[in-house]
Write a protein that binds this DNA or RNA. Structure first.
Lengths: 214, 214
DNA sequence: GTCTATAATCCGATAGAC
DNA sequence: GTCTATCGGATTATAGAC
């Protein structure tokens, strides 16, 4: 990759972080790089090609934040460090986290590039592996690690998105605490043992009522 | 409200559902309504005014889906019905759920309108009330109902967003099941009792290591 | 490889006739 | 209340000189 193309990509990442998808234009990118707009086309086929590279860079960086956890010696250590890496990435690169979940169609792509899809699959497998080894260590409950991953993924993703959109009236450091505390609740559960009994009783009542309706 | 303004709002909601924020324009809206663009300006001050009404309609409908749960006779019944209403709304109005979390600045507003903010506050209070009455009924664990709400909110929001963006390879009905199953895991917790002991031991080791580093 | 100049669209919004 | 016509500006992208 030429130096100039690297410089363009770097400026494109900054520009995207500052202005998001709608504010991103080839003219502004050119001004940021210090050239005129047509010069960009010598290095990229068009706007979508630039955004595709920004997306790739986001995924690469995200994976790097997570995989750093593999340096820890224990399953629980890797698990906790991966969560830490996740929240670090969200706080330090909020727009990148956004572009990774914006959908390829918004970036002018019919299908996401193959290499990006394989990065996503690898990250998914990474989480499943973290969950499985914690199950084997007796730290997480038994069950399909894929399903367990979904629950934890949804919770982390929801926390990240609500923070990014200003739904929590907190700053970065407070958010780290909020995230950890909420994770602790997810770990130990929010319901009492009473819940399961009441809930199954309620479902039984519904079935009875439906049965009577026939 | 005049008939024509209602028709414009209806078409605007459809247009937004189909094309999202970037594809939404006054010209396309006019074509959908069956008039020319300037005619819209007789009923709305501009694009942002239309989008503001779309946003308001989304919040109104969302609240209606949730508040239907108040017809249930028990705390657990209201709690479960509210969750059902939430997921129904997400499945039936995915773009509306999106616009509600897109941030007012993306809609050309400095501040969200007061009436919309008060609807948001009311919905927030609705969830806290559902949690509190379930706590009082012994179905949810004790603790600050606001904090408990955050955890459940983040999980539900994350599930909704991941579904909307196609991260789950499932259709609508399968997603309902996925959501319920994941909620069940959130209720009962994902970690074993072993987790807390290991985790606090790990934190202690970290503190010791940090202490040695001084 | 970069420039100037420009084509071709799209946009929001307005003026004035009817 | 709607129309035609138009302004002023943004965008992506290209042609051709240097």
């Amino acid at each position: 990759m030429s130096d100039q193309r690297e410089k363009i990509l770097s400026c494109a990442c900054d520009l995207y972080e500052r202005l998001g998808l709608e504010g991103f234009s080839m003219r502004k990118l050119a001004k940021a790089v210090g050239v005129t707009a047509p010069a960009i086309y010598r290095h990229y086929d068009g706007r979508d090609a630039v955004l595709g590279d920004v997306l790739r860079e986001a995924h690469r960086t995200f994976a790097r934040y997570l995989y750093a956890a593999l340096g820890e010696p224990t399953p629980l250590g890797r698990f906790a460090a991966a969560g830490q890496g996740f929240i670090d990435f969200v706080i330090e690169h909020p727009r990148w986290y956004g572009i990774m979940h914006t959908g390829h169609e918004n970036l002018g792509m019919d299908h996401p590039p193959e290499d990006i899809e394989s990065m996503q699959a690898a990250v998914h497998q990474f989480w499943v592996d973290r969950v499985r080894e914690c199950q084997q260590a007796g730290i997480l409950k038994e069950g399909d690690p894929e399903e367990l991953s979904i629950t934890m993924w949804a919770h982390a993703h929801g926390m990240a998105q609500l923070f990014r959109h200003g739904c929590f009236p907190v700053q970065q450091e407070e958010f780290r605490m909020l995230f950890k505390q909420s994770n602790a609740r997810l770990m130990s559960g929010v319901a009492t043992p009473e819940f399961a009994a009441e809930y199954s009783a309620m479902l039984r009542d519904v079935e009875v009522a439906v049965g009577q309706g026939d």
